[in-house]
């Protein structure tokens, strides 16, 4: 029972990360019907920007709450700019192009960022402890770590913020309109390009937050961390129903929990295969995902 509870806590924490990244995939897919393969790399860049910010501002040596907040917000701002730049330079010129071409471009951007990251940042780096870590043991064998609580807390507040933006603001309404029908939205005078740009910024901000949380907890960051992380988050988005915001959250937590349960009870070497297995089953049984809209291909 304690093993189960322990894995459940680990899974919630891991799932929060997947959910944050998955939100970026699902929002972009909602507006552009594009799998933004570069999203995982935006997440990776977020981790490194946070690291360099922490070094330059001296937060590494004397951590403080404003300092940590500065690092987090700085990484978020940088990633927002990066996401908007990618969209502007690589995806917007291809708006009228076939989906295969845009997809290949997205893969190209992803590879470019990953390999530039390898050249600029080196193959591996260590993220210092800038957030104090403690842990409690309420039951024998059950450990609750402060990092897990921080991860869940930050994730939940970001999700509430996102919900507010999407449901209550003018821009959020425009986003929903564009994802419903881009052409109709354009005819109603919605500045579609600006809405898409905003969507990329929003997704990238969440990815940067996820990157910060992972770096803070795991301390090891690599230029290729976005490849597998991004792919699994994408699986989470598909599982929940791509294009659906609550779906991405649900999918993220489900994937995180099933991964930790499998590695806790079975073998951790098969951990990476779980996500792909889930993906394949979902796509074959219910391609629109758990909460997705079913669409029919028309001429």
């Amino acid at each position: 029972m304690t093993v189960f509870l322990q894995q459940l806590i680990n899974g919630l924490s891991l799932g929060a990360i997947y959910a944050l990244i998955a939100l970026g995939y699902t929002m972009v897919y909602g507006t552009l019907q594009l799998i933004n393969f570069a999203h995982g790399e935006v997440y990776m860049v977020g981790a490194f920007v946070a690291l360099y910010l922490a070094r330059w501002t001296g937060v590494v040596d004397n951590p403080s709450i404003p300092g940590v907040a500065l690092v987090l917000l700085g990484a978020m701002a940088f990633c927002a700019a990066l996401g908007m730049t990618i969209e502007r330079l690589a995806y917007r010129p291809l708006r009228k192009s076939t989906r295969l071409n845009i997809l290949i471009t997205a893969i190209g951007v992803s590879l470019l960022l990953q390999n530039l990251g390898l050249l600029l940042f080196g193959p591996i780096d260590t993220f210092p402890t800038i957030v104090p870590e403690t842990q409690w043991e309420p039951m024998v064998g059950l450990v609750i770590r402060s990092n897990d609580l921080i991860t869940l807390g930050v994730t939940l507040s970001l999700m509430l913020g996102l919900r507010h933006i999407v449901e209550k603001t003018q821009m959020g309404r425009a986003m929903r309109a564009v994802s419903h029908s881009r052409d109709t939205a354009a005819m109603m005078g919605i500045p579609v390009d600006r809405v898409i740009s905003f969507t990329f910024a929003l997704g990238s901000v969440l990815a940067a937050a996820a990157a910060f949380l992972v770096a803070m907890d795991k301390h090891v960051i690599k230029p290729d961390m976005g490849a597998m992380g991004g792919l699994k988050a994408f699986v989470a988005a598909v599982l929940g129903g791509i294009g659906s915001i609550p779906g991405a959250v649900l999918g993220g937590f489900m994937l995180g929990i099933s991964e930790t349960l499998v590695s806790g009870y079975l073998a951790s070497t098969y951990r990476d295969a779980i996500a792909f297995g889930i993906l394949i089953i979902v796509l074959l049984v219910r391609p629109s995902g758990l909460l997705g809209r079913h669409t029919v291909e028309k001429v």
């Binding site: 690589a90 010129p93 290949i104 471009t105 190209g108 992803s110 590879l111 470019l112 390999n115």
Partner: peptide, 10 residues
């Protein structure tokens, strides 16, 4: 590779 791929697509 990746750079050529993007430029080519554009």
């Amino acid at each position: 590779y990746s750079f050529v791929l993007i430029v080519m697509m554009l």
